[in-house]
Simulated assay, not measured.
Amino acid sequence: MGYTAIVDYGVGNLKSVTNAMDYLGLSTRITSDTRELELADAIILPGVGAFPDAADKLRQTGLDRVLTAQAEKKPILGICLGMQLLLDRGEEVRECAGLGLVPGRVRRIETGLKLPHIGWNSLSFPNTSPLLDGVEEGSYVYFVHSFCAVADDPATVIAHTDYGVPVTAAVQRGNVYGCQFHPEKSGEVGLQILRNFGGLNT
């Protein structure tokens, strides 16, 4: 039986993601082992905290190279900070290189509203994606963030939300997917998104 690898690099909320996948009957392994990542059917990159700390840990462990290589072969889903790390660069604390799997940068949300953006907010879909199959436009999901992705190519943005300004909520480029929100904390809508991701490699 195949499995989805959940990357353990010291900055992720691994348990809640694992619990959601278990609930859906999807097999997972929490790992930082290169071989297990290579053998996995799919990979989830979670993340909480600051961009440069997480990016440094990926580089120090060599996981950046593994993820970049595996992105050509299988579905990868970045969640919250994990999604931001998919982009070229981040501007949180200090400018720092990301994985470069989705062209663009991560910048502070330029809104007049209070940051961080915490709570439930609705989605709009500028582009279609199998990640969002069965999810109705206007569905609410759960966010916790002060920085957001600014994609170079609008075609890679598959969901927006509004927080005084349009905010990128989800991205896709080839096998690479990202959710700024937490699908594992977003009720049935989030479960549907994880279910969709689990079906991408079948």
Score class of each variant (00 low, 15 high):
residue 32 S to T: 02
residue 190 G to V: 06
residue 159 A to S: 10
residue 150 V to K: 12
residue 166 P to E: 10
residue 117 H to G: 10
residue 72 E to N: 11
residue 93 V to Q: 13
residue 121 N to C: 02
residue 186 S to Y: 04
residue 111 T to P: 00
residue 87 L to P: 00
residue 43 I to K: 05
residue 7 V to N: 00
residue 1 M to K: 13
residue 45 L to H: 04
residue 162 D to W: 14
residue 24 L to C: 03
residue 192 Q to E: 14
residue 171 V to D: 00
residue 194 L to M: 07
residue 36 E to S: 07
residue 178 G to A: 11
residue 43 I to Q: 01
residue 172 Q to A: 12
residue 189 V to S: 08
residue 154 P to G: 05
residue 188 E to N: 12
residue 55 A to K: 04
residue 90 G to H: 04
residue 121 N to G: 02
residue 28 T to G: 05
residue 120 W to E: 08
residue 121 N to R: 13
residue 127 N to L: 01
residue 70 Q to P: 02
residue 83 M to F: 05
residue 9 Y to N: 09
residue 47 G to F: 07
residue 117 H to Q: 15
residue 26 L to V: 15
residue 54 A to R: 04
residue 81 L to M: 12
residue 55 A to R: 13
residue 67 L to C: 01
residue 69 A to L: 14
residue 41 D to P: 01
residue 76 I to W: 02
residue 201 N to K: 09
residue 70 Q to I: 10
residue 105 R to C: 03
residue 130 P to C: 03
residue 172 Q to V: 12
residue 173 R to W: 01
residue 61 T to A: 14
residue 123 L to S: 01
residue 113 L to I: 03
residue 109 I to W: 03
residue 137 E to W: 05
residue 68 T to W: 02
residue 89 R to L: 06
residue 175 N to P: 02
residue 170 A to T: 04
residue 16 S to I: 06
